[in-house]
Simulated scan of single mutants.
Amino acid sequence: MSRIYKLTVFEPSGEKLLDESFQAESDDQAKDLGGNLLKEKNYEDKTHRCTSPAGKLILFHR
Rank of each mutant, 00 (worst) to 15 (best):
F10D: 08
V9Y: 06
T8W: 10
A24Q: 02
D28A: 13
G34A: 07
Y43A: 02
K41L: 11
G55M: 10
E40L: 14
Y5C: 00
Y5Q: 02
D19Q: 03
Q29T: 05
R62H: 12
L7Y: 02
R49E: 11
G55A: 14
Y43H: 09
H61C: 02
K6P: 05
A24H: 02
D45K: 14
P12C: 07
A30I: 06
E25I: 02
D32G: 05
E20N: 03
L7A: 01
R62F: 11
I58H: 04
E40H: 08
A24E: 01
L18E: 07
K56C: 09
E11G: 04
L7M: 08
R49N: 03
K46T: 00
I58C: 04
H48W: 03
D27Y: 07
P12F: 06
K39G: 07
S26W: 02
L59V: 04
K46N: 02
N36D: 15
E20C: 05
G55F: 14
A30D: 02
A30S: 00
D19I: 05
K56F: 07
R49D: 04
E15P: 00
K39V: 15
P12W: 07
S26Q: 06
K41M: 08
C50V: 11
C50E: 05
Q23C: 09
E15Q: 12
T8A: 09
G34D: 06
E20D: 08
E25H: 01
H61D: 00
G55I: 09
G14F: 03
Q29S: 11
A54I: 08
R62N: 14
F60E: 09
K31Q: 13
K46E: 02
H48Y: 11
G35C: 13
E25Y: 05
R49H: 08
